[in-house]
Nucleic acid binder design. Structure first.
Lengths: 140, 140
DNA sequence: GCCAACCTTTACGTTAACGTAAACTTCATC
DNA sequence: GATGAAGTTTACGTTAACGTAAAGGTTGGC
């Protein structure tokens, strides 16, 4: 406690590898609530110093991955699966294969969605045409 | 308290225009729970004979419209808006115009979704390529 | 010696469209 | 008159990803 007041007048032991929850929240523009939620769902496990959560680069990278996963349409559960694989399997070869499979699945689902949307668009066009015809009839 | 068998001899009669809740459930392959839910949300208002709901062609057509709306991606609230318009406005001209607007909005949303999905598909392809490269490196 | 800025936990609220179950009545039938 | 098939109401459960308090520590500065 004595030394880091000298080295760091702002905070307690602020090293390169030390983040508070709001540090990360600011950096990635998410709420602290979300970060704690990810922890609750088993995607993060920060160190505790007393009551307080201390995040390191490892956690920071994980958060980054969580958010990238979300952007790519992965659910938190899917991302967690990935993390669990990684944690069980240091050689990330298997993890890469799992990742590839997840990606394939997601791609297939998205392609299905594409097709569905196209179908609905066509149906909507048909209904629209019907409406317009009907409207014409009523307005004459 | 006068027995309505006396006052209403048609009580049990099953006419062309008379459906029980499970008749409709069977015909449209939905649960009775759903039908009652639609009523709860103000989309249906069947006649009551005692406790029992009696549906007529009018209700049957509405249910059909509800389900078509769902297939087209309308929420129940949106369909209800449509019904309310129709009920307030006998001349269905206005209703047709509302319908057309709803359709336009829905089409715009779907086109947006199409674009979003395409973007994500491309991102997924990029991530996949990265994975494959990495995997190659590890396997050599 | 107190205020403000952080941090914490607990826990209910939100959206959509029902599923599921409990507990009950009515009706037709064997 | 027991049974079973339908009908009813009431109301909590489900999924995802948090939002939003409430109520309370701890620390540091003035």
């Amino acid at each position: 406690m004595v030394d880091n007041i000298a080295t760091n007048p702002e905070r307690v032991r602020r090293t390169q590898d030390d983040f508070s929850i709001s540090d990360l929240a600011r950096e990635f523009d998410v709420t602290t609530r979300s970060i704690r939620f990810y922890e609750d769902r088993g995607l993060l496990a920060p160190e505790r110093r007393g009551q307080t959560r201390i995040y390191h680069q490892k956690d920071r990278v994980r958060l980054k991955l969580i958010l990238r996963g979300k952007r790519l349409g992965f659910t938190l559960a899917e991302t967690k699966t990935l993390f669990d694989m990684y944690d069980r399997d240091g050689s990330s070869v298997n993890q890469l294969q799992i990742m590839l499979k997840l990606i394939e699945d997601k791609k297939a689902a998205l392609r299905q969605q594409l097709d569905d949307i196209k179908v609905v668009l066509h149906e909507l066009n048909a209904v629209e045409a019907g409406c317009r015809t009907e409207l014409e009839a009523k307005l004459t």
